[in-house]
């Protein structure tokens, strides 16, 4: 059943597949993002309560959900690398970690920028904000562990174990932070919540979300390609590739 997947364990096949995938993803993400962002930032109706400042929502929410999605993808990659000893899965996890960290940072920064006009402060110790911050720490830990090892294969395995430990802990941390917040202060923030959106607002959001997801795909593909090349730099096919590229 999974036989079609087997050839992709070969770095060369994977590299060429990523090469083929890349233009499609880039074009699609450019189309979706340009439509979505222009629609969202210029034409979508302003929120009746929050005015125009709610438009940052179209960047903030995709970034926040992608930051968690990328961690999950990383955990899946780490799991398959530990169980089936796929070296490329390590490479893909290594490619994903900085992207996830950046999106977590984007979510935090846009959240702060949104919070200033809405709540009158850049930061509050709200449960969601806090767990997002801790997610950023987890990402930074994984990246730091990756950088600490000189041997990339070892680094991948170690970071994989840490990712899996983290993925077990994320629900616990999330739950405990929720608990902590409700104990320490009333739910002033969650009252804002998500307004049930009208369709005029929802459609641009869907476009933005798909666009950002495709953008993540593009960046991960680019980084994944580089990881493959860096890890296989001794192989003949990489040398061929470099020769062909330089002769063109």
């Amino acid at each position: 059943m999974w036989k079609w997947l087997h050839p992709y364990a070969n770095p060369e096949v994977s590299y060429h597949f990523t090469n083929k995938l890349l233009p499609w993803l880039s074009v699609l993400s450019a189309i979706f993002l340009s439509i979505g962002l222009v629609w969202a930032l210029l034409f979508a109706p302003a929120d009746y309560q929050q005015g125009h400042s709610f438009r940052i929502f179209y960047i903030h929410v995709p970034a926040a959900s992608l930051s968690m999605g990328i961690y999950f993808a990383m955990a899946v990659a780490a799991f398959s690398s530990l169980v089936w000893q796929l070296k490329l899965a390590d490479a893909s996890a290594a490619a994903m970690a900085p992207v996830g960290a950046s999106f977590t940072a984007i979510a935090l920064i846009t959240g702060a920028a949104w919070g200033k006009p809405m709540w009158g402060t850049w930061w509050i110790w709200d449960a969601r904000l806090t767990s997002e911050l801790i997610l950023l720490f987890l990402y930074l830990g994984v990246i730091a562990l990756h950088n600490a090892f000189e041997d990339k294969n070892l680094a991948g395995k170690a970071a994989g174990i840490l990712t899996l430990v983290g993925v077990i802990n994320i629900p616990i941390i999330k739950y405990s932070v929720d608990w902590w917040n409700t104990l320490h202060q009333g739910s002033t923030v969650s009252k804002l919540g998500k307004p049930s959106m009208s369709l005029d607002m929802l459609w641009p959001f869907i476009f933005c979300f798909i666009g950002f997801s495709l953008l993540v795909g593009v960046i991960i593909c680019l980084r994944f390609r580089n990881e493959i090349l860096a890890r296989n730099s001794i192989r003949p096919w990489v040398r061929e590739l470099v020769k062909n590229n330089s002769s063109q």
């Binding site: 720490f137 730091a144 170690a158 941390i173 739950y175 405990s176």
Partner: peptide, 23 residues
């Protein structure tokens, strides 16, 4: 266990472990 093979594992250790201690 993750950092024992690394020369300067001390600071890294705190970065890895402290978020897990939060709950």
């Amino acid at each position: 266990a993750l950092t024992v093979g690394i020369k300067k594992g001390g600071v890294l250790l705190s970065l890895l472990v402290l978020p897990l201690y939060i709950p």
